[in-house]
Amino acid sequence: MFALVFGALVILGAIYAQPAAREEIVVVLPSPDGHTGTVIVQRGGERYVLNQPFAASRLTGEQSATAQLSDAEVRQSFGVALEALPVPPTTFLLYFVTGTDELTDESKEELKQILAELKHRPVPDIMVVGHTDTVGELEANDLLSAQRAERMKGFLVEIGIPGRQIQTAGRGEREPLVPTADNIDEPRNRRVEINVR
């Protein structure tokens, strides 16, 4: 009997500990590059423009107000959600020795760093696109660009990324980084793009 009454009190206590009114808050954050964008909050007839770092719009019950938060307050309230944000998608460029699917010495070094970074991404979705310069025939370059992409896929599979998560394509000389006339040996066009999401 006593346990029952005590239990009921605990339940009542739990109910009354909850806020009696709805609370909402929206906070604009500076992005890692320091730039802060804009969020426009429309609430009933009111409109708030938030465009300063940590500017906030708050609702408590029926009461709406703007506020300025600190980094620490945002961490306190949103730390777990922010921690769960995925790594932003990115693109890597690697360059090749002319007419081959061999990376330049510089790009070989860079590949090591890229592979190390990719290990930190859970389930990366990867699109590898190969390109060539304008030296040689169109058809031969289509083939070479596809080979370059496939070779890179091989490296990615080697570090344990499942092949089904990696798509490849060869664009030949059709999409130069630096537009040139035909038959121009342009090192910046002999490349692969590795798009990682």
């Binding site: 909850q18 806020p19 009696a20 009114a21 909402e24 954050l29 992005s31 804009t38 429309q42």
Partner: peptide, 23 residues
């Protein structure tokens, strides 16, 4: 959206919190 508001986004990072009464 939240229960009370609609947010338009102009290229940015932001956070939102909603606490429902008694939830």
């Amino acid at each position: 959206r939240t229960p009370s508001a609609i947010m338009g986004v102009r290229g940015t990072e932001f956070v939102v919190k909603v606490i429902e009464p008694g939830s």
